[in-house]
Each structure stands twice: as structure tokens, then as C-alpha cells.
Design a protein around this nucleic acid. Structure first.
Lengths: 215, 215
DNA sequence: GGCAAACACGAGAGATCGCTCGCGTTTCAC
DNA sequence: GTGAAACGCGAGCGATCTCTCGTGTTTGCC
């Protein structure tokens, strides 16, 4: 196997060749991404084999590599489409900069949206939660996390006007951490129990942030 | 490689042969477990190779398999020793069933102890946090988690006398989830920043539980 | 000292995985 | 219709990993 870095450096130029996809190809790509999502959900990223993904999609390994240069690219593309879907589903509606909104309402709305998205797309959690993400996936992961933190910071700022930036950053980190932990519990349960955990997650956040606001 | 289940079934009888360890052997085992802890910390369980563990310990792969039947057994034994050390370090001091203790004090004490232990033994977090734990490791993991939940439940009960058991269980799950999330943030920082995250973790728990107590 | 068992080595067997390659099939622009 | 390119296949290459085995060394007991 040749040097990876040189290869990726080459790609920036060589991959500019217009690989004109046919409708069939687009269908295969969607099929493969669906299969990958399914396999990633059940086994995680590293344990998922490209042969298993191809089998799940009902195609040969060779066909898989017709559309993706390597295993990582599958996860990258999947993550990218997931991010895109997330943006277009919830758009900028996440950050209503209206300081008149009560804290509890803002938290409830944000949590409900995110939980809903994660329940509909469980692979999102599988890709984000794995500590087994290699190379470029980690960058993608960090970028998303940073974006999320920033979003929470701006959401938070109007509620805590006097707080230093470093502290706001810390609070945002804690909030996201709490959300992730809550999400794990929510995804692990169903029906009424799941709803109860959602409510509990909201309680944690509201009480934590509420104490900061009235200070 | 023969059938694993048959092999393990055989082991229950065949492994009763007393493999009399020499002092040298005990030393090697400790050496190998230390090396395994180091490798698991940096690469995680699945990505850690037995050859890498042996190399880190300065012995040959064959020597490693003189003391452990397989890779999983290394993690099992490591986890077992970690659990034992945790018990003997903090013992039953975790559950002071004195209802006179204020909530904040109880939370602070419990969090400080656990954080301290996890900072001294980072491999504990590495083994618990990985979603990449196979076979018998998962059982061990679940058993530990269940123990932890039960412990928190008993710690919690005196503070919320009228609460139904199912709800106490849910609250305990949420508390452990919050703790894990907080631990991740704590381990990711150092010095004053780390202390700040510890304090923030305590705040979250105290405010969340405080609201339940006064209800 | 002698002997059996525990310890140590390291090459490599056996399995898996990511990925390639040669060749055949389908699609599409002209 | 025809040629080029996209699509599709699956055996298998090379790398890696877990674990074994034959052989030699050290230890502890008599």
C-alpha cells in the first residue's frame, strides 16, 4: 500500500476528473449508504467490514469500491449527508435569539428537536459516539462538536449576560456532555420510559442552567 | 481454531489443574497487565494488539499466552483487579447512610472519590467507555454498571423517601450518565481547568438532585 | 546434582480485512 | 448501430492480528 498522504495530495488534483454518474450509480450509492448505516449501527465503525456493507447492500465488494475510494469515505459521506439533512430539517430554527423566551421553553425546544433527529437517524449517534474513529473522521467529528458548542454558546449568551467567555464555553461543554449522556439513555429505552428520560434530561439542563441565570 | 464454547466448557474441568505460579510468573503477569493498561489507554481495547502489549512489556508473544488464554482474558483480569482496587480503596465508605448529611456534601464526597480514582487509573475509563467491548467483557461491563446503579440508588433513597422505585432507578441512571459525561470532560483537561469541570459536575448533580429533595 | 515443571522465545499457521484487478455487462451520446 | 464509459462481479493479494508450537532456559524440590 503506497503512502496515504501522497495519495490524498494527489487526489486534490487527480480526482477533479468528472466521473459522470448515471442514475443507476446514484441509486447504488444510496443503497450502499443505507447498508453502511445499518451495519455501523449494529457493529460500530471499526468492526464493520466493507464486505459486510456490500453484502448488506446486495452487491459485490468491487462494486462498493466503484463508488467509494475506501472505508473511511463511506463514513465521511454518510456523516456529511446526515449533517446536511439535519441542517435542512431544523435549519437555523435552533437559535432563536429572543431573550424574552423563558429558559425552560428554549431548552425544551432544543432538546426535543435534537432527540427527534437522533431517534430517526440512530446511525448519527453510532458515528459520533465511537471512540474508534480514525484519521479524517476524527477531524469531522471535532468540527461538528465545535460547531455544536458554538451554537450552544450563542444560545446561552443572552441568558447569562455577565459571564466571562471561558466560563460560557465550559458551561456549553457541560451542556453538550449532559445531552449526549441523556441521548444514550433515551435511545436505550422505548415508549413511555423513553419519554420519561427525555423529561429527566430536560429537568437536568433546566435546573443546571436556571441556577446560572438567577445568579 | 476449535469450537470456543466446547473449549470453555472443557476449561471448567480441565483448568482445575493447579498451575503453580512461581514468583517470576507473578511478576510477569503484573508487568503484562501494566503494559496492557498502557496500550488500552492509548488505542482502546479492540485496536490494541496482543503483540503490542507483549512488546510494551518487553516479552515475546508466546510468553504473554503462557499466562493468558486469550486477549479478552487480559482485559477481564485487568478489570477485575481494577474493581478490587477500587473496592479496597474506597470500600463501603461510598454509602454513608446518614440522612443527616446534607445532599451537597454527599455528592461532593462521592464525586471527589470517583474522580480521584479515575484520574489515577485512566484505563478504567478506557475499558468502560469503549462501545467496542466483545463477548464476556460486555457482561462484566453490565455487571459493574448495574452494581454502580444499585449503589447510587441506595445512596439516593434516604434523600427521596416517597419516590417510587422505578423513578429512583431512572434518577440513578441519569446520575451515572451525568457522571460519565463529566468524567470525560474532566479527563480531557488539566490543572485549574480540570478543577473547574469537577466543580461544574458537582453543580449539575446537586441542582438536579436538590430539586427532587425539596419536592 | 538431577529432574520435572514453569518460564521464555519467535517463527509462523490460520483467519480476517481492506482493497485491487481483469473481465464481462449495461447505458448513453452520437 | 457503435464505441466509450460507467457499472458490476468475485477471486485473491498483501497486510495484520490472534494464537500455537517446538525448542531451549530457569527455577524449585529431593
Amino acid at each position: 500500500m503506497p503512502d496515504k498522504t501522497e495519495k490524498s495530495g494527489k487526489q486534490q488534483v487527480a480526482d477533479e476528473r468528472p466521473v459522470r454518474r448515471q442514475a443507476r450509480g446514484e441509486r447504488r450509492i444510496a443503497q450502499l449508504l443505507d447498508a453502511a448505516a445499518s451495519v455501523f449501527c449494529t457493529t460500530g465503525y471499526t468492526a464493520a467490514s466493507t464486505n459486510a456493507i456490500a453484502r448488506e447492500a446486495g452487491v459485490s465488494p468491487g462494486t462498493l469500491y466503484q463508488f467509494f475510494p475506501n472505508k473511511e469515505a463511506i463514513a465521511i459521506e454518510l456523516g456529511s449527508r446526515l449533517m446536511h439533512r439535519m441542517r435542512e430539517t431544523y435549519g437555523e430554527a435552533l437559535a432563536p435569539p429572543d431573550p424574552a423566551t423563558p429558559l425552560e421553553e428554549a431548552v425544551t425546544a432544543a432538546v426535543d428537536r435534537f432527540i427527534d433527529f437522533n431517534c430517526r437517524n440512530p446511525v448519527f449517534f453510532a458515528l459520533m459516539h465511537g471512540p474508534d474513529i480514525p484519521g479524517r473522521m476524527a477531524e469531522e467529528h471535532d468540527a461538528l462538536h465545535a460547531t455544536l458548542i458554538t451554537r450552544v454558546e450563542t444560545l446561552l449568551t443572552p441568558f447569562v449576560p455577565g459571564m466571562p467567555a471561558a466560563e460560557v464555553h465550559r458551561v456549553a461543554q457541560v451542556c453538550v456532555g449532559i445531552y449526549k449522556a441523556g441521548l444514550e439513555l433515551v435511545l436505550a429505552h422505548e415508549g413511555a420510559e423513553r419519554e420519561a428520560y427525555v423529561q429527566e434530561l430536560k429537568n437536568v439542563l433546566v435546573r443546571y442552567l436556571g441556577a446560572l441565570v438567577v445568579d
